[in-house]
């Protein structure tokens, strides 16, 4: 206890005010407390106004103490006010809580057809190796579809393709994109050629889960003075690794196409079973992905390139087949049926 009664009074004031502040729980009570303890008529303020009536020697001591109490009360007020604001904010936030497990609102979204998506990937990979897209017509002449590709009339290899003929003699629906090889070579000879030829082709077949009457083929063609079978192997392996993954193992098997020689079939190790054998690869561990070979001298000749000087390679794959492998699609009919339940998944 001080010997000065005014000091004791100030101490008591402070203690009481801080006690009361603890009870304050909302903004209105806080304002009332401020009026009661820091307002013009508050006891503390009256201490200030009475300061002049005190003995001169006591004035500094009491004045200093009164200031301390005022600062303490103001600080306490500010602290309390902040706490109340925080509480109010938290209450408000709590009251705005959503059930975030409700579904989101989707913007109307369009998608590309799966064949467009796969084609773009394939085109991009070959574009980086210098191959540019070249397109040609779908209704073709027998000459471009067969004869100029080393399949004269009655060539048994024509049996490899079941062909749709039109009512105009010598006009058919192309069975492969290879007619484009002749078109592009004739257009560019003797310049080197690096093109990728995508497009719709047609075959006379019963439509089933495995076969369609129209299908997209993607061919690549390189012609130059120094194109080798090893280049074919390197280019196609690069492609397979980029499309199917760095680990993809491939193999080339001898095969036969009338427009290439040597000809080969490329298999990629089944990425469904890792080569152990499964239903997708029919137990073999390998998936056939494309046919390829060195451009046949007759075809080079027909394209306007001297086969003694020029050489080339070509490869062709089925776009739907690749897409089916990539996404494990089991029915080729999905592609042209355009059922939204299929398309929505891409």
């Amino acid at each position: 206890m001080s010997e000065i009664p005014e000091i004791n009074e100030l101490d008591a004031l402070q203690t009481r005010a801080l006690e009361e502040l603890k009870m304050v729980s909302d903004e209105a009570a806080l304002q009332a407390w401020r009026v009661a303890h820091l307002g013009r008529n508050a006891p503390l303020m009256q201490v200030f106004s009475r300061l002049g009536q005190l003995p001169k020697e006591l004035r500094p001591q009491v004045g200093q103490r009164a200031n301390q109490v005022k600062q303490a009360l103001e600080a306490a007020l500010e602290e309390r006010a902040a706490a109340l604001r925080a509480e109010a904010l938290h209450r408000a936030l709590e009251s705005e809580r959503l059930d975030v497990t409700l579904p989101g609102r989707r913007p109307e979204q369009g998608r590309l057809h799966p064949t467009t998506r796969t084609l773009r990937r394939i085109v991009r990979i070959f574009a980086e190796m210098g191959f540019q897209v070249y397109r040609s017509r779908e209704v073709e002449s027998d000459a471009y579809n067969f004869e100029l590709l080393n399949m004269p009339a009655h060539h048994p290899a024509r049996d490899l393709w079941d062909t749709f003929y039109t009512t105009i003699p010598g006009v058919l629906l192309r069975t492969h994109t290879s007619p484009g090889q002749i078109h592009v070579m004739r257009e560019r000879a003797p310049e080197p050629v690096r093109v990728i030829l995508p497009g719709m082709c047609y075959r006379y077949e019963q439509i089933s889960a495995r076969s369609e009457i129209q299908f997209n083929q993607v061919e690549v063609l390189a012609v130059g003075r120094n194109i080798t079978f090893s280049d074919l192997k390197g280019t196609l392996n690069t492609f397979a690794r980029r499309l199917f993954g760095e680990q993809a193992r491939t193999r080339l098997r001898p095969s036969y196409f009338p427009f290439t020689e040597p000809s080969a079939e490329m298999d990629v190790e089944c990425f469904v079973c890792g080569g152990k054998g499964c239903t997708v690869c029919k137990g073999s561990g390998w998936l056939e992905i494309l046919g390829c070979g060195m451009v046949h001298p007759t075809v080079l000749q027909n394209g306007g390139y001297d086969p003694q000087v020029f050489s080339g390679f070509a490869a062709g794959m089925g776009l739907e087949r690749i897409t089916m492998l990539l996404h494990r699609i089991e029915d080729i009919r999905y592609f042209w049926a355009n059922d939204v339940r299929f398309l929505n998944q891409f």
Binding site: M129, G130, R188, E191, P192, V193, R194, A222, G224, R225, N226, I227, T228, F229, S230, D231, K233, G234, T235, N237, T238, R251, L252, R253, P254, E261, P262, S263, A264, M294, H296, P297, T298, P307
Partner: peptide, 29 residues
């Protein structure tokens, strides 16, 4: 044409799997 035919036989017997992998050294168009 006969040359191409022989090339195929040589590649077949040599083994497609033994052929090297290269990228074309020929100039790009």
């Amino acid at each position: 044409i006969g040359k191409a035919d022989l090339i195929e036989e040589i590649a077949r017997l040599y083994g497609y799997d033994r052929l090297p992998e290269t990228l074309p050294a020929d100039p790009l168009p």
